[in-house]
């Protein structure tokens, strides 16, 4: 018995070290990557880089339309994906009775989560760009990205809803609240931070995706900012991809600087979202 207890302790400390390494190694790799990219792009990380349009002269080229396009894209994507995703999660968790329809929806959501992103690009091209004649617009891009991130939003929201103890729901019913009042005033506020985590993850995914946008025909060069959801657009990953494939060394620096900008925007987004999440957690 005693030796078993001891080997348990040993096992535990081994596990501790292994999990610590599992955290440190990816962080080290990421830091190394960030530092090298930063050094490569350092010379181009000037304010002008953020405020200029693309150019054939690497030293004049900037990232403005791509940056603005990416920001518009993720805003539109969340506006589309969050209500639909949270709505589906509420249905499945709160209203669904586990019948064949629920099972069908559930299987489809898990299937969607496993579909390669390039297929979403093809779907978006046929459905949004051509069939619904949205053209190669921000709106078509946002709808495609929304489809792409829906499974993440739904799964995360369901987990968050499930984490709300049923005793709270019952207490609310006991006070005479209807189902909808219970969901709106008890369940949703309790699970908001979990839902927000899912939304952050999905927005970051949408921000970094390139393949569906290329298929969708997001552009590489445009010298104006999108001024409506029907406007053509470009996005950060596409601009970076384009610069990386150019022969001139100056464009490689631009690509590195673009990667730094993308990382900073992602960190900012995450920071803002984590701030709000913590605030909500405190309220509860």
């Amino acid at each position: 018995m005693k030796s078993g207890w001891r080997s348990g302790r040993l096992l535990e400390s081994i596990l501790k070290v292994v999990s610590l390494l599992a955290v440190i190694i990816p962080l080290l790799i990421l830091t190394f990557f960030l530092i090298t990219v930063f050094l490569d792009g350092e010379s181009r990380l000037v304010p002008q880089f953020l405020t200029s349009y693309p150019s054939y002269k690497p030293e004049d080229a900037g990232i403005l339309p791509a940056l603005v396009g990416s920001i518009y894209l993720i805003i539109l994507t969340s506006v589309i994906a969050v209500p639909i995703g949270v709505g589906s999660a509420i249905y499945l968790e709160e209203y669904g009775n586990g019948g064949w329809l629920d099972n069908l929806i559930e299987i489809n959501i898990s299937n969607l989560a496993g579909v390669p992103s390039i297929l979403y690009g093809l779907l978006g091209l046929e459905l949004f760009v051509r069939a619904l004649s949205m053209g190669r617009s921000l709106l078509a891009g946002a709808f495609t990205m929304a489809l792409l991130v829906l499974p993440i939003v739904i799964t995360a929201s369901r987990e968050a809803l499930r984490a709300v103890p049923s005793s709270l729901r019952e207490a609310s019913y006991a006070l005479g609240a209807s189902r909808w009042e219970t969901i709106w005033q008890v369940v949703l506020p309790m699970s908001a931070s979990g839902i927000l985590t899912g939304v952050i993850l999905s927005v970051c995914r949408a921000m970094g995706e390139t393949a569906p946008l290329i298929f969708l025909g997001a552009l590489t060069y445009l010298a104006f900012l999108p001024d409506s959801p029907m406007s053509p657009f470009t996005a950060l990953p596409i601009q970076i991809f384009n610069w990386i494939s150019r022969p001139q060394a100056g464009f490689a620096e631009n690509a590195a600087a673009g990667i730094v900008v993308l990382m900073v925007v992602l960190l900012l987004l995450n920071g803002i979202a984590i701030y709000f999440r913590n605030k909500m957690q405190k309220r509860i």
Binding site: Y53, P54, S55, Y56, R136, I214, G217, A218, L219, T220, Y221, L222, A223, F224, P232, N242
Partner: peptide, 17 residues
């Protein structure tokens, strides 16, 4: 397109790959 923009500011040229 970059040079054309200097000549004709109101025309929007878009290029895809």
């Amino acid at each position: 397109a970059v040079n054309f923009k200097e000549k004709a500011k109101d025309i929007r040229v878009t290029v895809g790959i």
